[in-house]
Design a protein around this nucleic acid. Structure first.
Lengths: 214, 214
DNA sequence: AGAGAAGTGGAGGGAACCTCCGTTTAATAT
DNA sequence: ATATTAAACGGAGGTTCCCTCCACTTCTCT
């Protein structure tokens, strides 16, 4: 006790300016585990999985979940946010391991998966991601950046035709993924992506399909 | 007991075919009270009012609510259904008490209110009212019928110009009501409705505004 | 008026939400 | 290496909501 007091006196000026200590490793890890568990839970039980089930799957206590995410909506938003980030982060990784054309193709399939989760959680995402929100803006930016990079590289590598506007391609992907809300849409979207990719590759008919300007 | 038996014997052939007895008065009344309470509850507390709160407001037990509506979604659907019915039923009543032009005008304001509730409960209406459902079909039919009648009468009465396509007008109303999801949209929609009505009345510029065919 | 069908109310069991706080653990100081 | 301590953890438990069940009441029809 005396020692304690002495120490305090000696270190009285210890924190003149907040010098944050390194964040704990387990905290970050648990956060990731929770997001993974949430995504899996949504997929398996639908949007109304109990938060306790999510915590159980992540192998953490319910209190931990609530410390990381104060509400259900915060959980949903985190899942969505990470989904978009992964889509963006996949780009360099794909470009490293595959030729540019193939990288673009694979990414387009990832995009279909992304839309699948987005559709699933959209109702609960609610106001957080409406047109105009910062979340929405960030997502659009990240995704546009990703596809632009991929297209540029594929064009540079001669894997796809030169007259591709990345925004048009993105619109095509969205169009392929939305609008058919039946059960088989995901498989259908995948097939359409493959066809789209074939179209991109063909240099022969470069003049036949003409994408609208903007 | 003997009497009982006799009666039964005498009336043995009472129900050769299911002959429903008249539904009880209190049942119908409670149903209405519940729908009213639900609409009020949604407006006051949002879409997640507890069903118990709704029952309380209606002055009935929770059991009664559940007998009438087996699920939350059923409650929401009933509210929506009645909203549409009221919109249709308002027509003859308006035409009785107002000149045809004014009746149309008033109805258009009712329509804005209708959209307000519809927007509120849409998320929970979910699959029940998607394009293609019978609920959706019925609603479109009722509403189209209503506005068509009103327009016809107003034209016949000389209150509005002759070149009005009811479907176009309906589209305009929808356009005026959707698309601006901010807080002031309802007031804005009302102002636009008034302007629209002024436009309908003016016979002078009948050629200036030309509605697209279908 | 009396019988019985139909409807009612609300207690109660179960599930999910969320808070609170005693315990544990990782990061830092010694 | 050890001590210290801020940060994070876990989960019991209070609260709220959901929904079922059934003893009781009320309405309709004879």
């Amino acid at each position: 006790m005396q020692v304690l007091f002495q120490e305090q006196t000696i270190n009285a000026k210890r924190k003149p300016i907040a010098q944050a200590r390194k964040p704990r490793a387990d905290s970050a890890r648990n956060r990731q585990l929770l997001i993974d568990a949430a995504k899996a839970g949504f997929a398996e039980f639908g949007l109304n999985v109990s938060l306790e089930e999510i915590a159980r799957r992540a192998g953490v206590g319910i209190g931990t979940l609530y410390r990381h995410f104060p509400s259900r909506e915060a959980v949903v938003e985190a899942v969505y946010r990470r989904e978009v980030e992964q889509l963006a982060e996949a780009v360099p990784q794909l470009l490293e391991t595959s030729p540019a054309g193939e990288a673009l193709h694979k990414w387009m399939h990832l995009f279909v998966d992304y839309i699948a989760t987005k559709r699933l959680i959209a109702p609960s995402l609610g106001a957080a991601a409406t047109r105009g929100s910062s979340l929405h803006a960030t997502s659009v930016e990240l995704i546009t950046g990703a596809i632009t990079t991929l297209v540029k590289r594929a064009v540079a590598g001669g894997d796809v035709r030169k007259d591709i506007d990345p925004s048009d391609l993105l619109r095509a992907l969205v169009g392929v993924s939305y609008g058919n809300p039946d059960v088989g849409w995901q498989a259908s979207a995948r097939r359409l992506v493959d066809i789209l990719m074939d179209g991109l590759r063909s240099t022969a008919s470069a003049s036949r399909i003409r994408t609208a300007r903007r």
